[in-house]
C-alpha cells in the first residue's frame, strides 16, 4: 500500500520525531510504500502545514493520491495548542477538521505513543469525533487501548497494539516506547491509588452512610 505518514520529522530529532521514524520503519518493514509529510525544514518527502485546519486541508488534498493516511499524533500534531479560551476554540475546530479529513481519507490510521501528550487529552465530544474518524488506531500498550475504549473514542476491534520494535538494533526504539508506557502506567496507578484512598476515607467518615439531603 502507498501510505502518507503525517507527523513531526527530523531535524531536530526529539522524542516525537523519533516516534514518527519508528512508525515509518514499521510500515516500510511491513512492505508498505511510505512517504512522509512534515513541516518545512524537515527531512520529509513532502513539506507543508500539518497542524490545525490548514494542515487538515493540506493533508486532505494530498491524501487523495495515497491508499491511506497515517497520522502520528503528538503534542504539536494535529492540534494547535495555546492557552485560554482561544486555545479551546481552536482545539475544537481542529478536532472537527481532522475528524472530517480522517473520515474522508481511505484507510486512515492514527498512531499514538503517549495519550497524555495530547493536549486536552481524548475526552469530550469533539475529541471523540477526532479519534473515531480513523479506520484504525495504533497504540503501544494495553493500557492506552483500555483508556481509549473507556473514554468511548474507539471500539476495541479498531485498536491495534504495536509491539515494541525488535530489530537487531531495536533496543533504543523499544526502550523509548516502554519508557513512555511505563510512565503512563505509573501515572494511572498513582491516580487510581489516590482515588481509592479518597473513597476509603469517605467510607470511614461517620456520616458516610447517612442519607443525602
Amino acid at each position: 500500500m502507498r501510505l502518507l505518514v503525517v507527523g513531526p520529522y527530523p531535524p531536530p530529532s526529539g522524542a516525537e520525531e523519533r516516534q514518527t521514524m519508528t512508525t515509518v520503519r514499521r510500515l516500510a518493514n511491513d512492505g508498505d510504500d511510505v512517504e512522509v509529510l512534515s513541516l518545512i525544514g524537515s527531512a520529509a518527502h513532502h513539506r507543508g502545514a500539518i497542524t490545525g485546519t490548514a494542515g487538515a486541508l493540506d493533508v486532505w488534498r494530498r491524501a487523495r493520491s495515497y491508499d491511506g493516511v497515517v497520522l502520528q499524533v503528538g503534542t504539536r500534531v494535529p492540534l494547535r495548542t495555546f492557552p485560554g479560551r482561544r486555545g479551546r476554540i481552536a482545539r475544537l475546530v481542529d478536532c472537527l477538521a481532522w475528524g472530517i479529513v480522517l473520515r474522508m481519507s481511505k484507510g486512515s490510521r492514527i498512531v499514538v505513543s503517549d495519550l497524555d501528550a495530547i493536549p486536552g487529552s481524548f475526552g469530550g465530544r469533539t475529541g471523540r469525533f477526532l479519534w473515531s474518524g480513523a479506520s484504525r488506531v495504533v497504540v503501544t500498550s494495553e493500557l492506552s487501548k483500555q483508556r481509549l475504549v473507556d473514554a468511548g473514542c474507539c471500539e476495541p476491534e479498531r485498536i491495534e497494539l504495536a509491539v515494541a520494535h525488535t530489530g537487531p538494533h531495536g533496543r533504543w526504539d523499544a526502550g523509548w516506547e516502554l519508557a513512555t508506557d511505563q510512565a503512563t502506567a505509573e501515572a494511572v496507578i498513582v491516580e487510581r491509588a489516590a482515588r481509592d484512598r479518597r473513597a476509603a476515607a469517605r467510607a470511614r467518615r461517620p456520616d458516610a452512610q447517612a442519607p443525602a439531603r
Partner: peptide, 8 residues
C-alpha cells in the same frame, strides 16, 4: 528515508 527504514 533509506536510512530511517534500514538503520537497524
Amino acid at each position: 528515508h533509506h536510512l530511517v527504514v534500514n538503520a537497524d
